Computed example of a mutant assay.
Amino acid sequence: MHAPRPSHAPEFKRLAQYIRDDAAGAPLVFCPSPGNWGDSLINAGSRAFLAHLGFAYVELRREQILDHPDLASCHVLVGGGGGWCEFWHTTPELVSSLAPQVRSMTVLPTTFGEPPTQPEPTEGVRLFARDDSYSLDNRPDAIFCHDMAFHLSPDPVDDPSSGNHLSAFRIDKERDQASARSEDPANRDLSLEGNGFSASSGFYDRLREFDSLDTDRLHVAIAGAQLGLDVTLYPSAYPKIESVYRSSLEGTFPNVGIHSHEGPVR
């Protein structure tokens, strides 16, 4: 089985067509996601997607975008991720502030948490969800597409036989509060060793040191899956992990299993 990559994932092609239709020839501005090192995979995947589909664009970070001299004529692509929930709400705040100032907008695949983090649907703003269950329950106006990190195609580890195992559990407020895994002295929250603008290649290189991992970090799991490592995914503080696993990992990556609250599943 293969990852849902651009050559055979219809969701990415549908996303591209919506962008073309909604932009209608307007200049594109890509505003990448800040955050931890895992978010760098989202940003790198977004850039790879835009390049693969032949989109010309200008990239501006959140602190730069309001300085664009002609924002009202632009179609803005807001980077996706997990910043739209009770724990992190910077993305809906950005969308609410930008929407009146731009021609139109696409929010790239995002997890949409439960209200009240949701601004009302806004004309000219199209939302994409990175899972086809939890997020769509919360935002029925969103459209499913895989997380943009799935648009990356790193070379898999040829022979993962080092015997090295990584435990990479969150130590921030999104961790599973009922679990003590993040308190294990051997735990290494790899995603905090870089940020959303660090090189995604370095993230993959760190993971190449291992041949198996346990994590509740979504992009540690996605990167490990792409590299062919033996991955066990654990839930975090809200249903993001399980919903993306069911939408994009289950049945596609046989090297990935999930340990739900009820027990392990493979």
Results as ranks from 00 to 15, higher is better:
Arg139Met: 01
Asp205Asn: 15
Gln177Thr: 13
Pro92Gln: 08
Gly202Pro: 05
Tyr57Gln: 07
Thr110Met: 12
Tyr245Met: 09
Pro4Lys: 03
Asp159Met: 10
Glu193Phe: 14
Glu59Trp: 10
Ser40Gln: 09
Thr90Ser: 15
Asp176Glu: 14
Ser200Val: 03
Phe197Lys: 10
Phe30Val: 06
Thr90Arg: 11
Ile171Thr: 15
Glu262His: 05
Ser182Cys: 14
Leu94Gly: 05
Pro34Cys: 00
Ala48Arg: 14
Ala223Gln: 08
Asp70Pro: 00
Lys240Val: 12
Phe253Arg: 00
Leu227Asp: 12
Tyr18Gly: 00
Asp22Leu: 08
Met148Glu: 00
Ala142Thr: 03
Gly196Ala: 09
Ser243His: 12
Asp67Glu: 15
Leu190Glu: 03
Asp211Ser: 14
Gly79His: 13
Phe210Gly: 07
Leu166His: 06
Pro235Lys: 09
Leu60His: 00
Trp37Ile: 04
Asp205His: 14
Val58Tyr: 00
Arg208Asp: 07
Arg170Trp: 13
Thr232His: 10
Ile19Thr: 02
Ser161Leu: 12
Thr252Ile: 11
Tyr238Pro: 02
Lys173Asn: 14
Val244Pro: 06
Phe253Leu: 01
Ser161Glu: 15
Thr111Asp: 01
Ala26Ser: 13
His146Pro: 03
Pro116Ser: 14
Asp39Tyr: 09
Leu229Trp: 05
Pro32Met: 08
Gln118Thr: 12
Gly45Cys: 09
Phe12Tyr: 15
Pro160Ser: 13
Arg170Pro: 13
His151Trp: 13
Glu123Thr: 12
Gln177Asp: 11
Asp21Gln: 09
Trp88Cys: 01
Arg20Asn: 02
Pro116Trp: 08
Lys13Cys: 05
Asp131Ile: 03
Asp159Pro: 02
Glu11Met: 03
Phe203Trp: 06
Glu242Phe: 09
Ala223Trp: 04
Val107Asp: 04
Asp39Lys: 07
Leu94Asp: 05
His89Lys: 15
Asp147Met: 01
Lys13Met: 07
Lys240Ala: 08
Leu213Gly: 08
Gln101Ala: 12
His52Ala: 14
Glu209Pro: 04
Tyr204Gln: 08
Val107Ala: 04
His165Arg: 15
Ala221Ser: 15
Ile222Glu: 11
Val78Met: 12
Leu166Glu: 10
Val157Phe: 10
Ala9Tyr: 04
Gly251Trp: 01
Gln118Ala: 14
Tyr245Gln: 07
Ile19Gly: 01
Val157Ala: 09
Glu123Ile: 02
Leu227Ala: 11
Val102Lys: 04
Val244Trp: 06
Glu93Thr: 15
Val220Asn: 06
Gly124Leu: 07
Glu262Pro: 01
Leu218Tyr: 06
Ser133Ile: 01
